[in-house]
Design a protein around this nucleic acid. Structure first.
Lengths: 244, 244
DNA sequence: CCTCCGGAATGTGTCGTACTCATTTGAGCC
DNA sequence: GGCTCAAATGAGTACGACACATTCCGGAGG
């Protein structure tokens, strides 16, 4: 009995249980990212709890990027991405806040120029092929006007480079940054909105060639240019929405 | 292409603002992991909000591992011990695996050189003071042989620079990288183990001066040198443990 | 003096209610 | 058809009350 210890933490708050039950419910209902979920009141009655507890559970789920709440509309299932789990910055990023967008792209610039630099000296032939086909997918998406295809290729391209850097931490941060950018996509801001898709495919090609040629600095420069142009595209789009 | 009218999301719920304010408050009060924080009611009155909103903000902060709530006791700044497995990269990082340590330092090098570069052009006088006093704390810890004091100063120094970069994403990734390094500390590997403490204080001074002088490249170079030396220190210590 | 016990004090967890404010819907009008 | 505006829906905020866990403290008993 001296001192203590264990028994202290043997308690589990209800909002945690409810959070798990909500995830379970999403799975049972077969809800997919973007789908609408039951309202707070419905969840409260169905799970035999109060709305207060449900709300706190939802806050947890939204903080880790599984649920999205919109005032006046409802609750929505968000990207699952159970991989490295869960948005550490999810709650604070607002895609229409220009300061936040600048900040995010500044962050991406740091992560991805570093990743490209490393990839140029470390990429294996298989990884080079992955990057190349991703760029090709992107190009096809642009040519055929399928923005979904473009987005998928873009995703594979940037994550492929990160993977080729052979640094898991960089992969995780690149992935996280992209996940945050998807929040923008959720409100209608796509990377392909402007006329940037054409330039983007060219820039992708330039980045790929620099990496394939094993030129770290050229790869970093090309990546920086690409991200700067993408940011400029975003900036125009947001301003158009706010003032246009 | 129409629909999606404008600023569909140009609204910011209060609990997010409060969550940020709480983080800011923690920083201002100089609270360290494990320290007790103000109660929910105190936070509510101090931040001019209601307990409801404060509670939801706390749920977010606890979900991302910054705050821990214990029933009947109070709120605590998280020491992350309950999250070793749930942290984003916690699962696969092994502090004694040299490859992983290299990888982590490579990551830190990317994050912190970028942070120093930005801090050199953005740091406010107050932030410069924070960095300077942290470096001084570090030096005192070295001179008096108090390694705990050194570690605390080191922590404040690097996080202070990240904060001065004015990019929350960089702050988060620097913090995350340090958290992982603490896992090394947990098994007995401290940054101060070798004779590196002496050099470290000098390197800190060099970094600080470069930032204060507003020289981004010098700041980045000094930071890179510092991290490389720290890594070397780690490398020696690990080898000593494995083979010694 | 020390230990043990029990109640008071503190503080998070849960519940209910009543609002506000953003968004959507739909009925009625032009 | 397209427009306006009011009702309905649903998350966000606030307040008050109580349940439950933990800690603090003083008094009874040895």
């Amino acid at each position: 009995m001296d001192s203590v210890s264990v028994p202290a933490g043997s308690y589990r708050p209800g909002y945690e249980l409810v959070a798990e039950q909500i995830l379970q419910l999403i799975a049972e209902l077969g809800l997919r990212p973007g789908d609408r979920m039951p309202t707070e009141n419905e969840l409260a009655t169905q799970l035999g709890s109060s709305r207060t507890v449900v709300r706190e559970a939802v806050k947890i789920l939204s903080a880790i990027g599984r649920v999205r709440a919109q005032k006046g509309r409802g609750l929505y299932v968000s990207d699952d991405d159970g991989m490295l789990g869960s948005g550490r910055w999810g709650g604070f990023f607002h895609p229409t806040d220009l300061d936040h967008v600048y900040m995010l792209f500044e962050f991406r610039r740091v992560q991805e120029t570093a990743a490209s630099r490393l990839a140029a000296t470390r990429a294996t032939p298989a990884e080079l092929r992955t990057i190349e086909t991703a760029a090709e997918t992107c190009r096809q998406g642009h040519l055929t006007g399928q923005s979904a295809l473009f987005d998928r290729g873009d995703d594979d391209f940037h994550l492929g480079i990160a993977t080729a850097s052979h640094n898991s931490f960089l992969v995780a941060s690149v992935r996280e940054a992209r996940r945050l950018q998807y929040q923008s996509a959720a409100i209608g801001l796509h990377g392909t909105v402007g006329g940037h898709a054409q330039e983007a495919t060219e820039e992708h090609a330039a980045i790929y060639q620099a990496i394939r040629d094993g030129d770290p600095e050229a790869a970093a420069r090309a990546t920086a240019v690409h991200l700067d142009n993408t940011l400029e595209d975003y900036r125009r789009e947001i301003q158009r929405r706010v003032f246009g």
